[in-house]
Each structure stands twice: as structure tokens, then as C-alpha cells.
Simulated scan of single mutants.
Amino acid sequence: MYVAVKGGERAIENAHAWLAEERRGDRAVPELTVAQIREQMALAVNRVMAEGSLYDPDLAALAIKQARGDLIEAIFLIRAYRTTLPRLGASRPVDTAAMACIRRISATFKDAPGGQVLGPTFDYTHRLLDFALMAECDVPPAPEASATPGPVPHITGFLNRDGLIQTEAAGEATPPDLTREPLELPASRPLRLQALARGDEGFLLGLAYSTQRGYARNHAFVGELRIGTVAVEVDIPELGFAIEVAEIELTECETVNQFAGSKTEPPQFTRGYGLVFGQTERKAISMALVDRALRWRELGEDFLGAAAQDEEFVLSHADNIQATGFLEHIKLPHYVDFQSELELVRRIRAEAELAQAQPEAAE
């Protein structure tokens, strides 16, 4: 149980003031602005938006500044703010096939229609510190480039033409909303994908890596990884049609996995799927690998005891806000709990010493 700390209000206020001073840092250095974080730390902003379940780069940048760069704390701030917002409606499912791609690659087809678009990526950079960045001068502009013209087809569609990849079943009319309803197990795939999209990138990365090392026997190819903007449309009942209300940046990954077949399904390829806010490709690939590992039951595969196959383990531990809350609560006052355990250990030790002394006295 917790013990109320009386008379600590002044100490807490001073702690907050000290935190604000540490956040500001050396006042001889110009203060970092929200706009600078939004534009120059975009990948951190994207992660906060994805795991905070709120697409707003300005608010995500503000949360990063307020949290002193602690991304999980920033995600917590965004989640908390999100709960205060009214829900005005629901958008149509976004059409990722119509995405204006700035990056689109495939590890399975070299000459895919629409071509390979490398886009802005660290994939081909040398992992050497660039000390020129310390000069804080403007970088030369990149050659003029734009998103790929027009929509480009999903690459896994080519396998569909030959019937070599599993056809996805039609989704639920209205999938459950994880932000409004508690998670119930067993979970449907749409609910699992929601949980993975909000899940901690590092946790999912570790699980995804485990599948590649043999835990779940899940060898995957990246069928396609695409990053770009899609239109968000909302149906307006008064008008009788949908209107575009925004454009958002997404990362989508489809993996292609071997499937030896089962009693009901022929040998074919199957998919893993990841879709995340912003340019967040490591998270999207990890999500796709874990999604595929969790599909063992519906595909009639054997459960191999791997962590990535265990739905309860994955979904109950993926959320970094829940994990942080439970982990960090142990630094709060637990004086009564500890005193009771302390007394218990003292009593057990005293009884053990007494029992040891009695045989010696009898001798």
C-alpha cells in the first residue's frame, strides 16, 4: 500500500522548478524551438505520433521538448492529451495503393512496376560521425525529387495473380477500437494489429529479431516497404459523399513468408503486415514479422513455444505506457509494504537462530 507524503508539496514544486531549469539547459545556448524539433528530429516525432496514437507533428514535437527528449515520456504526454479530445467521426480506411510514395522498395522483385525508389534512407550511409554537422551550416540542397507519379500497385499483388500467396479474408465490418475498449483475449487480427501499431518499437524489434533467429521458424522477405502520403476521407451524411480532410504520412510493410501448407491450406506464401504513422520503417517491419508469428493458429501451424507466438505475452507487454507505469510505480512510497516484509524476515531469522540454539543447548 502507499503512504501519503505530508508536507511534501513544497519539495514537489521545487523538483518541478529544477526540472524546468534542467530542461532549458545552458542559457548561453539558444533555446530549441518546437518547429526545430518538428523539422529536424522528424523520426523521433514520428515515433511519438505512432505510439501515442495521435497524428499531430506539432504536439509530438512539443511533447519531446517537454520530456527533455525522453520519447516514452513524450508518448505518455500525447496519450494523456489524446484522451481529452472529442471524437468527431470516423474516417474511411485509407487506400495505401494510392499512396504518393517517397520511398518504395522490394527485396523480392528487382524490376517491379513503378520501380525501386530509395528515398531518404540511412541504408547506404557509412556509420561514421559527420563532424561537419557540428559546424551548424546549411547543407546543400538535394537534387530535385518528388513522390512517384500516380499510384503504384502493391507488389504482393503479382504473387496473387498466380495464386501463390494466401488471399486475405474480408475484414470485420467495424473492427473493435482498442483506444475505447479493453483488450480481450483471444484477439482478432485487426485488434492485434492495433496493439502492435501502438506498441513499443524496441520491444517489437526484439521479438521480430527472435523470429529471424529461429524462435517461431518464421523466415520472411520484405515483399514491399513503402513510405508516403495518403488522403484521409470522411463521409459527410448531409452531402452524401466523402470529402478529403487531411493528408498523413504512413509507412507500410508487407512481408512474404513461406508456408508449407496444412490439412486445409496448400503450400503457398503468407503475409505479415505493418502500418505505422510517419517514416517509421524499423517499426513497420518489426510489426509485420510479429504479426506473422501470431498467425500460427489461424494458419494451422504448430505452436513452438516462442515468445513472438504467444498472443497474451506479446499484447500484454507491448504497450510502453502500461509497462512504464507498472515499472516506475515501484519508486513511489511503499513504506508499509517494506516494513511488513522487514518484520517478517526478522521474525524468520529469529526463529531460525532459536531453533539452531536449542539443539546446541541440549548437547
Rank of each mutant, 00 (worst) to 15 (best):
E353H: 02
G69K: 02
Q358E: 05
L19P: 00
A242F: 03
I64C: 06
T121A: 07
L59S: 08
L185F: 09
E22A: 13
G114I: 10
E360N: 01
A306M: 03
P359I: 02
V234Y: 10
Q309N: 01
V276M: 14
M49F: 09
I227K: 02
E144L: 13
K263L: 05
P120T: 02
L225S: 06
D177E: 08
D319G: 04
R198T: 10
S146C: 11
Q194T: 07
D95R: 12
L178Q: 00
A220I: 05
A28R: 14
S91D: 08
G325V: 11
G261H: 02
P237I: 08
R346L: 11
E233M: 13
I105K: 05
A242C: 06
G157Y: 05
A242E: 11
E168A: 13
T251V: 09
Y335Q: 13
Q194M: 07
E51W: 01
Y209K: 15
F241S: 14
Q339I: 06
A61N: 05
R127V: 07
V314Y: 05
F313D: 02
I64P: 04
G272M: 03
E22F: 08
A74R: 10
F269W: 06
R180E: 14
I165F: 03
F109S: 04
T211I: 10
A170F: 03
F221Y: 13
F122W: 06
E249T: 15
G89S: 11
C101Q: 07
E22N: 12
N257M: 02
A288N: 01
R87Q: 14
Q36P: 00
V152L: 14
E360Q: 05
A67R: 04
Y335D: 14
A362H: 01
A260D: 09
L43A: 10
P267G: 01
T270D: 04
V336M: 07
Y55P: 00
A147G: 15
I64V: 14
R27A: 06
E360D: 01
V45D: 03
A35D: 14
V290G: 01
L332M: 10
G119R: 05
L304C: 03
G150T: 10
D26Y: 05
L185R: 05
P333E: 06
A142P: 07
P140W: 06
P140H: 09
Y209F: 12
V276S: 05
R127L: 10
P57K: 04
L315R: 03
P57G: 03
S53R: 14
G223D: 12
S316G: 06
L204T: 10
A307F: 04
L19I: 11
V232Q: 09
E31A: 12
G240K: 13
A231G: 13
L204G: 08
L183N: 06
K6M: 13
A145D: 14
